[in-house]
Computed example of a mutant assay.
Amino acid sequence: MVRIYDMKQKEVINTRDGSRLGYICDIEIDLDEGKLIKIIVPGPGKMLGFFGKDMEYQIEWDAIKKIGEDIILVDLDIEKCLIESEY
């Protein structure tokens, strides 16, 4: 059993290229089904905090391959999951 707080303490790493994506900042849950749909990780930082849009990695539950003690391993195409933040 894993709590959301515990998941937010784990670093998310993409197994395709070994890149470190960061830490979970939010999740998306289907309340009707009672299922976790996505984890959300902040995207790459804006240059000097001024230029660019806020981007985030929206990682589908199916892309999560392993949740370990310190890390969450995911297998994903970065280009497809890096999306402009809605907030």
Results as ranks from 00 to 15, higher is better:
Ile83Glu: 12
Gly22Phe: 00
Arg3Phe: 14
Pro44Asn: 07
Tyr57Asn: 05
Cys81Asp: 08
Asp54Thr: 15
Asp77Val: 13
Lys65Ala: 10
Gly34Ala: 07
Ile24Gln: 06
Ile72Ala: 10
Ile27Tyr: 03
Lys53Phe: 04
Val41Asn: 00
Lys80Leu: 08
Pro42Lys: 05
Ile83Val: 15
Leu21Val: 00
Gly22Val: 07
Glu28Gln: 14
Gly34Leu: 03
Val2Pro: 04
Asp70Glu: 14
Ile37Ala: 05
Lys38Pro: 01
Pro44Cys: 03
Lys66Phe: 14
Lys53His: 09
Ile64Leu: 12
Tyr23Thr: 00
Arg16His: 07
Ile13Gln: 03
Phe50Tyr: 14
Ile40Gln: 02
Lys35Ala: 05
Arg3Gly: 13
Val41Arg: 01
Leu82Glu: 06
Asp30Glu: 10
Gly18His: 12
Gly43Gln: 00
Glu84His: 02
Asn14Ile: 11
Asp6Pro: 02
Tyr57Leu: 01
Met1Trp: 08
Asp30Trp: 06
Gly45Lys: 11
Glu28Gly: 02
Asp30His: 11
Ile4Arg: 12
Gly45Ser: 07
Leu48Arg: 06
Asp17Phe: 05
Asp75Gly: 12
Asp70Ser: 13
Lys46Ala: 01
Gln58Met: 05
Glu28Phe: 12
Gly52Phe: 10
Gly49Val: 06
Ile72Lys: 07
Gly52Pro: 04
Arg20Leu: 04
Trp61Tyr: 08
Gln58Cys: 04
Lys8Pro: 02
Gly34Met: 07
Glu79Ala: 14
Lys38Met: 08
Asp77Thr: 13
Lys10Arg: 15
Gly18Pro: 05
Ile4Asp: 10
Gln58Phe: 06
Ile64Met: 13
Ile13Asn: 01
Thr15His: 03
Tyr5Met: 11
